[in-house]
Design a protein around this nucleic acid. Structure first.
Length: 632
RNA sequence: GCCGGUGUAGCUCAGUGGUAGAGCACCUAACUCGUAAUUAGGGGGUCGUGCGUUCAAAUCGCAUCACCGGCUCCA
C-alpha cells in the first residue's frame, strides 16, 4: 500500500494526509510525538551535513511512523552510510543540545542562506508568503559562535565527536522539542534511503530521501518494527508464490498476471459469488471485446485525456485498433445499438471486463499495480431523479459484498469538481448533491476531497481496512456527464422527446487482481473455507487405505467440496506438515481404525484435532462454515 | 520513467578472476508407517540477457530486461 504521509506543498502547513482538514497547529503542545519526529528530521539533516559537507538540505517533515529528510548529495548514501548517520544522530541526541526558535528578518536570513550556499532553502524562503513570520530553529546554542558547516574535520569512518558548543540551524516553522535529549535514542532508527524529487516534481532535481522511524519509547519502536514484519509476512507476492496462487512471468512481461490452478479456483469462487450478487441486485451481465477501433477512444475522449495510460495502437489492415484501457465505451455502444425508453430505466449493466493500461515499469507491484487486470465494472443508465436511489443501491451492494469478504470497516471519500473538467456547473452540483444524499441516507460518514473528482464527474471512493489496520482503496462510484454527451446518448422521454441519460460508473472490487492481493494479505493466506482452494485433504496413513480415501474424497466432491487425497506416499507426520504449510483448512486422517469404524479423524486449521467424525458430521460442519463464511 | 539495490537449480540462498554448491522440492528404491519433516540413491543450472576486458568471467566494465525499496503516476 502507499501511505500518503504528509502534504509537502508548503513547509508551513504540515498535515497528515488522512486528515486534511486539521493542520498541525504551531502552538499545539499536545503533539509531543510529532515534535519528536520533526526534531529527529532536523537531527538527521545535521548529522548528514556533518558527515557529508557536500550535502544540500531541502526539507524534512514528520510522517505517520517517523520522519524523512531529502538531500541533494553528489554521492549516493549506502546502507553503511545510514549506520554512520544513525550513530551520529545518537551523539547529537545524547549531547542534549538545546533547540532554540528565532524569528528572523527575511532579507537578513536570505543573505545568511546565500552565504551557506543552500539553494533549496532559498527556494523555500521565496515561497513563504510576504506577510508570514519566518522562523528558524537552532540545534545547539546560537551564541556559541559555531554555525552550520562547522570547521570540524568530518569523518566518514566514525561519528564526529560533538563539541558542546556546536550549533546547526534549519529554516522551519516548527514545532520542535526543547532539547535533543528529550528523544529516547533507543526509540529512533533509520530505515531506508530512496529517490525523491524536489517538490515532488519529476522534472526537477532527483534528491536522496532518508527515511527514519521515531517513537516515544523503545517498546513503541519494537511494536512498530513487529508490525512491519507482520506486513512482510503477509506480503501477497511471497504468499502467492508459496501457496502457488499466481505468478508474473519475466518471459511474458512485467505486470501481466498468471493465475495458477489454486489462485484460479479462488477467482472462480469470487466471480461466481459476484455474478450471483449482481443478478440478485438487478444487474444484467455483458461481455465485450478486448480491442476496438481507435476512433472509439477518440470519441470517448480517452485518447485526448488518458493517452499516456494507453498502450500504443495496433495496426489492423491500415486501421488503428486499441487494446481497451476501460470498458465504458463498450457499454455505451451496447446501449447505442437500440433505442431506449425511460420506462426501461434504470439499466444496470455489469461486466468482469479485462483492461490493459500502460503503467511505467517502476510502478508495477505484484497484483496491486499491473498492466492487465479485470475490473468488476458496471454502468447504470438512469434518469436524473433516479441518481440518488441508484447510488444508494450501489452503496448497499458494496457493503453486502465487502462484508462477505470480511471487510466491515470503511473510509469513504467524496471527491468534487477538479479544475480540468467538463460539463456545466449546474449538473455538477446536481450530481454532487445526489452523491451526498445517498451517503447521508446510508448514514456513512465521509471526508470531502475538494477538486479530487474525475474530469467527467464527481465520485465516491471507498477504502477498506484490513486485518492489520491498513487502508486499501477498492470501490469507486462515479457520475459521468461526459460520455453520454460525447456519444450523443438518448432515451425517449414520457412526452416523446429525446433526452440524455445520466451514466454512473462503479466498481466494487476495483480490480480482481488487486482485490485478490488484498484478500491474501488480509487473511495472511488463511482463506476462510468458502474461498480456500483446497477445502479438505484426506491423508491415508499407508497405501492400504488409499482406495478408501479416494472413495470418501469422491463423495465430498459430489457434495460440491474441493477435496483431494494426499498422493505423496509420505509418512503421516509429513503429510500433516505439508497440509499445514499449504494452509488447508480441514485435514482428515484415514487409517485402519477409520476404515473399520467408517469414521474420519479430523483436524482443522482453526480448532486443531477434533477426533473422530462421520462423513455426514464433517459435511455438516463444513457446510455451516461455508454458510457463515468462517475460517473453520 | 527517475534514484538506489538485487538477479546463481522449481524455491530459499552460499560461492570476489582458475573444472558451479547446499537445504527444501522433484524422480527412484526400501520401509506400510497414527497427527508438523523415514532412510538411501538419482536427475536438474549456457550463473537474467547481450556485448566487451582477460590466457581464463557467476565474479570486472558497458548496455538491456525483470524484480525489490522509494519518487512520480494511478481514468
Amino acid at each position: 500500500m502507499r501511505l500518503h504521509l504528509i502534504n509537502l506543498r508548503s513547509l508551513y502547513v504540515l498535515m497528515p494526509n488522512s486528515a486534511p482538514s486539521q493542520p498541525l497547529s504551531l502552538l499545539d503542545t499536545a503533539n509531543h510525538l510529532q515534535r519528536i519526529r520533526h526534531t529527529c528530521a532536523h537531527i538527521l539533516a545535521m548529522a548528514v551535513q556533518r558527515l557529508f559537507p557536500n550535502a544540500k538540505v531541502t526539507l524534512g517533515p514528520w510522517t505517520e511512523t517517523g520522519f524523512f529528510y531529502d538531500f541533494d548529495c553528489p554521492t549516493p548514501f549506502t546502507p553503511g552510510d545510514l549506520e554512520r548517520i544513525e550513530a551520529e544522530m545518537r551523539q547529537i541526541i545524547q549531547a542534549d543540545l538545546p533547540i532554540i526558535q528565532e524569528t528572523v528578518d527575511r532579507a537578513a536570513i536570505k543573505a545568511e542562506i546565500e552565504q551557506l550556499n543552500e539553494p533549496y532553502k532559498l527556494e523555500i524562503l521565496a515561497s513563504i508568503p510576504e506577510d508570514a513570520a519566518i522562523t528558524r530553529y537552532f540545534i545547539g546554542c546560537p551564541d556559541s559562535g559555531w554555525t552550520n558547516h562547522p570547521e570540524v574535520e568530518p569523518s566518514l569512518t566514525h561519528p564526529v565527536a560533538i563539541p558542546p558548543q556546536l550549533c546547526w540551524w534549519d529554516l522551519c516553522a516548527g514545532p520542535h522539542l526543547a532539547r535533543t535529549g528529550q528523544i529516547n535514542p533507543q526509540a529512533v532508527a533509520l530505515e531506508s534511503v530512496a529517490g525523491a524529487y524536489w517538490r515532488g516534481d519529476e522534472t526537477k532535481a532527483q534528491l536522496q530521501r532518508i527515511y527514519g522511524t521515531a517513537w516515544e519509547t523503545p517498546e513503541q519502536l519494537q511494536a512498530y518494527l513487529q508490525q512491519k514484519e507482520e506486513a512482510k509476512r503477509r506480503d501477497h507476492r511471497k504468499l502467492g508464490q508459496e501457496l502457488k496462487l499466481f505468478s508474473i512471468e519475466e518471459q511474458a512481461g512485467g505486470g501481466l498476471v498468471f493465475w495458477h490452478p489454486k489462485g484460479a479456483r479462488i477467482r472462480r469462487v469470487i466471480e461466481d459469488y459476484w455474478r450471483q450478487a449482481h443478478t440478485a441486485a438487478g444487474y444484467e451481465l455483458l461481455f465485450t471485446p478486448h480491442l476496438a477501433n481507435l476512433e472509439l477512444w477518440k470519441t470517448s475522449g480517452h485518447f485526448d485525456f488518458y493517452r499516456d495510460g494507453m498502450f500504443d495502437a495496433i495496426d489492423v489492415e491500415e486501421q488503428a485498433y486499441q487494446l481497451k484501457p476501460m470498458n465504458c465505451p463498450f457499454h455505451v455502444l451496447t446501449y447505442q445499438h437500440d433505442l431506449h425508453s425511460y420506462r426501461e430505466f434504470p439499466l444496470r449493466w455489469a461486466e468482469l471486463g479485462t483492461v490493459y493500461r500502460y503503467e511505467r515499469s517502476g510502478t508495477l507491484h505484484g497484483l496491486m499495480r499491473v498492466r492487465g487486470f479485470t475490473q468488476d465494472d458496471a454502468h447504470i443508465f438512469c434518469l436524473p431523479d433516479q441518481v440518488a436511489a441508484e447510488i444508494l443501491g450501489v452503496l448497499n451492494l458494496t457493503e453486502t459484498i465487502l462484508s462477505d469478504f470480511g471487510f466491515q470497516d470503511y473510509e469513504v471519500n467524496l471527491s468534487t469538481r477538479p479544475e480540468k473538467s467538463v460539463g456545466g456547473n449546474e449538473i455538477w452540483q446536481l450530481a454532487t448533491a445526489a452523491l451526498i444524499e445517498a451517503l447521508e441516507t446510508k448514514g456513512w460518514p465521509y471526508l470531502t476531497d475538494e477538486g479530487g473528482g474525475a474530469f467527467y464527474g464527481p465520485k465516491i471512493d471507498i477504502k477498506i481496512r484490513d486485518a492489520i489496520g491498513r487502508l486499501w482503496q477498492c470501490s469507486t462510484i462515479q457520475v459521468d456527464f461526459n460520455l453520454p454527451e460525447r456519444f450523443g446518448m438518448e432515451y425517449v422521454a414520457a412526452d416523446g422527446s429525446r433526452q440524455r441519460p445520466i451514466m454512473i460508473h462503479r466498481a466494487i472490487f476495483g480490480s480482481l487482481e488487486r482485490f485478490f492481493g488484498i484478500l491474501i494479505e488480509n487473511y495472511a493466506g488463511l482463506f476462510p473455507l468458502w474461498l480456500a482452494p483446497v477445502q479438505v485433504r484426506l491423508l491415508p496413513v499407508s497405501d492400504k487405505q488409499r482406495d478408501y480415501a479416494e472413495q470418501l474424497a469422491q463423495q465430498l466432491k459430489q457434495q460440491g467440496f474441493r477435496a483431494e487425497v494426499d498422493q505423496s506416499g509420505d509418512r503421516l507426520g509429513k503429510t500433516i506438515r505439508t497440509a499445514e504449510l499449504e494452509k488447508i483448512p480441514v485435514i482428515a486422517v484415514i487409517g485402519n481404525r477409520e476404515l473399520e469404524s467408517e469414521m474420519l479423524s479430523v483436524r482443522t486449521r482453526a480448532e486443531g484435532e477434533l477426533g473422530s467424525l462421520t462423513l455426514q458430521a464433517l459435511i455438516k460442519k463444513m457446510q455451516d462454515a461455508i454458510a457463515h463464511r468462517s475460517l473453520i
